[in-house]
Simulated scan of single mutants.
Amino acid sequence: MDEIEVRELVQSEYKEWDLIVEKAQSGTLFHTSEWLEICRDVLSKDLKIYGCFRNGGLVGGCPIFVKNFKGILKVATSTCKMTSYSGPLIKESASSKAHKRAQETHEILNSLRKFLCKQGFDSIHLTFPPGFEDIRPFTWNGWDSAVHYTHYLSLKENIDSNLSTERRMEIKTATEARLKTRAWNDPETYYRLLSMAYEKQKVKPPLPKKFFERVFKLIQEKDIGYMFISETPEGEAVAAHLNLYGKKCAVIWTATLDPDFARLSPYALLYYNEFFDLKSRNFDYMNVMAANIPTFVDFIMGFSPELIPYYSVTLESKKYSIAKILHKTIHKGTY
């Protein structure tokens, strides 16, 4: 096959990248240039989208955020706060033969891997989206790998038959308190609830208000999601989810609640009614991005979701490894 050229995309090529994201089976909203630009602008990230070209046509690539630590270490990662995965993407193969598709994937990923290794990064961390399973071009060449998890809740099954006794009791509690649920896209309400939840823990929210304002604006302009809330009979919002649309799923991207209403179990009712709401919107499943958070796993398991793995790969220089050991030694006992 013809050789793969890898280079950074210019702004005018982002539309072409978004077409790859749209058509690729494992392409997600987190890969899109619009999402990446929100991360770049609000979080002051140095964004690069590297494209892989064959005969002048874009066949794959990978978004990267670059950070320099005091001019000593240069670190590259495909993720940032509350963007759990992104990573390499490959244009869907036209071949019906498995070995041919694997060959094309390996050629593109090997070219990308070699290119990244020449960019002077002291650490490279790539997190692949769920559904992207073949990471061998990296692991076969000395990269470390790790497995992560998310939960898929099928919208084609009978949710009532899959509920645990505890979730049933919580839904009953919320119903008896006359809590209701509905869609309502209001960034002020969401950030108020989020701030209250984090204030209770005496920490700041993970992202600034501006980030959520940009996401809500994107939701309204592109119809790529919505907010779903639980509210009191008086109309006070006490819990909320921000859902982002995927190809066959809705991603439960972030959730929050007013801690003073936790005893009324608004989360349980929110998930339960959201199941039917998303089913009516013709999605196949809910992607509940909380399987790596031990404190939340027990709750979501009460809805009987399917555990889905996804993968990351990492390559570190000796300098970075030494710096990491020194950092852990200096801060030992503070974690």
Rank of each mutant, 00 (worst) to 15 (best):
Y245H: 13
N162G: 09
D18C: 04
G87W: 00
K319I: 13
P88K: 01
T28G: 08
V297D: 12
K74Y: 12
R178L: 11
T77I: 07
I224Q: 00
L36R: 03
E306S: 13
I325P: 03
E37Q: 10
M169E: 15
T32I: 07
P187S: 05
R101I: 12
L194Q: 01
P130N: 04
P259V: 02
T181F: 05
V215N: 04
E92I: 07
A290P: 01
G142A: 01
I38K: 03
R113W: 04
E92S: 15
G302H: 06
D122P: 03
E199Y: 07
N292H: 03
S164Y: 14
D2H: 10
K324E: 10
G71D: 03
S312L: 02
T79V: 15
P206G: 03
H241S: 12
H31N: 04
F53N: 00
P137N: 02
A291V: 01
H148W: 05
G235E: 01
W253I: 01
A239L: 03
K324G: 08
K45Q: 10
T314D: 06
K45E: 15
R101S: 05
N243R: 06
I171V: 12
L193S: 01
C62W: 03
K81C: 11
K202C: 13
C249T: 12
D46M: 07
F30Y: 11
W253R: 08
C80W: 06
V288C: 12
M196A: 12
E5G: 05
Q119N: 09
A24R: 00
I322R: 10
D122E: 09
A146S: 14
N158C: 14
G302P: 04
I20Q: 00
T329I: 14
I229R: 00
A177C: 11
F228V: 05
A94H: 14
I124C: 08
A290I: 08
